[in-house]
Design a protein around this nucleic acid. Structure first.
Lengths: 228, 228
DNA sequence: TGATGCGTTTCACTTATTGAAACGCTAATT
DNA sequence: AATTAGCGTTTCAATAAGTGAAACGCATCA
């Protein structure tokens, strides 16, 4: 964990992240959030703006820029995972009526890991779990956390009740060797699919049914090589 | 057009762009493309890597990172435009069978402007124009170019034959005041929708039919305010 | 065996980043 | 009206920080 990083760039990226998280922020706000002096934040934001990574809206607040959307979308489409997983997610929705998610372990940075939702298939029930692509959820206490830790039991799926959100039940299964070299199996899976549903609608039988479905879809995905 | 930009950050962002464009590049390649010394490129790429904006794949090549996908996706979902336009695109596909696109004027940087596809509804014909979200297309000679220049004729749509691609016909219409302040009408529209089809399938009557449809959808979108 | 190209590290040079302070402004506050 | 508070912005001297040529080890290729 060496630290051969350029501070300026780190700060700029931090700023970029803060802008994206907020959706729209004033200079004073981001500079406080990132603990940068106003002048520094302004200079860096200008640079980001010149490159199209952020833009200033009509009210003078900073928002994510087009370049970012473009690069992100490009990267997304390079990620074949999403295309591969989409049909599986759809099938899960059809079979369960609940929302299904594809997530990957987020950037392992400072301590607390997160998972990032890469793709979503929304459930058909009018009361459903709704989230958004790009959302980052904490791993600790969630079924995804267990999955990403490589602790998935024989059954092939992990259930979490009252985890990150109190009234939802999440059922997750790992996409084990997706994109992983044979040597790196002990680092845990890179991706996972999950079904998230309101707890009141669940019972042991239903959980097992869905769990088996999720695990089956996850296993099915493993057969297909991840072409570029 | 002042230049109060930090060189380091600019270079890092340039590097990031190069990595995304390529999908996967070696250090030597990017450093040549961006005209940076290998040592500088390495240092900056390391910083980008530490922040999750790029990652190194098994072969040691640099690829777009998860953080970028995450931020891009987040930004995308904040962009209400896409959600607003999606139904219109779908209707165009249903009425024409051809692919329909939502695009915005890309970051006006160094000279040659581009448009970025933000959303796509794929046509139903087996031979269809296929592109991808995030793709950036040059404006010069395209119907989008005319539209973004604010030169759309009375008819409400612009047709380009043998433009950027030789064998396709594009029909575009501007989303005039979307997101624009009243004062900035002369800067041209910010977004446009278009239908792109193989030329051999087109004829004057069909072009006019589609043109009217595109213009009508574009006009319909203007009525709806762009909520956050 | 020599040549080429790669990723990487080192290091002296000095360039380019930094942040406190000051400015003008608007919007609450008194 | 006068006052305060907060914002975006600019300036500028101090110095912290980024730079790139050169050298290294390691591949692969002739």
């Amino acid at each position: 964990m060496a630290e051969p990083a350029t501070r300026t760039v780190e700060r700029a990226l931090q700023l970029l992240g803060a802008v994206c998280e907020a959706g729209a922020v004033s200079l004073a706000e981001v500079s406080r959030e990132t603990e940068l002096s106003a002048s520094t934040a302004l200079r860096l934001l200008r640079t980001l703006e010149n490159s199209g990574f952020v833009r200033k809206d009509e009210e003078g607040e900073y928002r994510p820029g087009l370049r970012l959307v473009q690069l992100g979308a490009q990267a997304l489409s390079h990620e074949s995972l999403i295309h591969l997983a989409a049909p599986a997610l759809q099938r899960l929705v059809e079979a369960t009526g609940e929302s299904a998610y594809l997530s990957v372990r987020g950037h392992q940075g400072t301590g607390n890991d997160h998972a990032v939702y890469l793709a979503i298939a929304e459930g058909t029930h009018s009361v459903r779990h709704a989230s958004w692509v790009g959302r980052s959820v904490p791993l600790s206490g969630s079924s995804l956390g267990v999955v990403f830790a490589g602790k998935t039991p024989e059954s092939g799926y992990v259930v979490s009740d009252k985890g990150v959100e109190l009234d939802v039940t999440a059922i997750a299964a790992p996409l084990r060797q997706l994109g992983a070299t044979d040597a790196a199996v002990d680092e845990g899976p890179l991706a996972a699919i999950s079904v998230v549903a309101p707890s009141y609608r669940m019972n042991p039988a239903e959980i097992q049914r869905i769990g088996d479905l999720v695990a089956a879809e996850a296993r099915a995905l493993l057969g297909i090589p991840a072409g570029s």
